[in-house]
Amino acid sequence: MSELNQEYKPLIVAFCCNWCSYAGADLAGSNRLAYPADVKIIRVPCSCRVNPMFILRAFQRGADGVILCGCHPGDCHYTTGNYYTRRRMSMLFSMLDYLGIERERTRVEWVSAAEGAKFASTMNDFAKKVASLGPNKRLEDLRCKP
């Protein structure tokens, strides 16, 4: 029963593209802009490298929120990658809607390498939203429970 007494801490997976958002996260660090430790970042070359399967997998494994960050539209290091991301994610989000996953548990955000402050405020905001939703039970694969 000790779990109940503990403050609920959501688990958030953040996919960041190497060229803009990951550098933005580094800048947030350099400027010491705090955000919750619940956010764990995975580096990908481009936001378009993120397969919708990765996001589903995270939810299955117990993530409470997944955020995907890429370069601003038009600024993609690979010219067009984030346009694919935008389309793929709008498809995925409507599917998640259909599955009954709250819309607030997923987010796509464009963060440039200069936007350390935006990265931190986005993560603060997202973590707060996800925490208010409570644990993700809908898609969690109970077989994965330790």
């Binding site: 990908v44 070359p45 481009c46 378009c48 993120v50 690979y78």
Partner: peptide
């Protein structure tokens, strides 16, 4: 260039 768009 290794963006990975094709993998998805």
């Amino acid at each position: 260039q290794g963006c990975g768009a094709c993998t998805v």
